[in-house]
């Protein structure tokens, strides 16, 4: 922060925010709210806050239908000067596959982030998204 004249508009960079919640749809709202709060802290515009909130919801919802009982869902936000990189991961049931790239969920994710990819490896599904901070 140092000499910043507007300390509330945080010069947030190189921070990592991690949230781990039970893999239960009831926590989607918690994750959406946390995401919106983080985006607001990064000075996203109102529309882009909504986009990011939606993107995280879509990614989490994709995974929640694949997770076994009592699993956890992890959301990791890596903040850099130019980007916000988000990785959402959860263990998935044997044989689980992510929705097709032509599904609505991916369509929404692609329209709301600069980049969105997903993979399942070693029983863990991860969806990674990149949001550009300066794009307002």
């Amino acid at each position: 922060m140092g000499t910043s004249e507007r300390p509330d508009e945080a010069s947030v960079e190189d921070d990592i925010v991690s949230l781990v919640v039970p893999a239960d749809g009831g926590y989607l709202n918690v994750l959406r709210t946390a995401t919106a709060g983080l985006a607001a802290r990064l000075q996203y515009t109102t529309d882009r806050i909504e986009d990011l909130r939606s993107a995280v919801d879509e990614a989490c919802a994709m995974l929640l239908v694949l997770t076994p009982a009592d699993a956890s869902l992890s959301c990791r936000f890596e903040i850099s000067v130019e980007q916000l990189r988000i990785a959402i991961s959860a263990p998935v049931k044997d044989g689980a596959v992510l929705p097709s790239q032509t599904s609505w969920a991916w369509h929404v994710l692609a329209s709301q982030t600069a980049e969105a990819t997903g993979e399942i490896a070693g029983g863990l599904a991860t969806i990674r998204m990149v949001s550009l901070r300066g794009k307002n």
């Binding site: 919801d57 919802a61 599904s103 929404v108």
Partner: peptide, 9 residues
């Protein structure tokens, strides 16, 4: 107040 692709579907 919020609608995701599950709701759209």
């Amino acid at each position: 107040t919020f609608l995701d692709s599950t709701g759209v579907r």
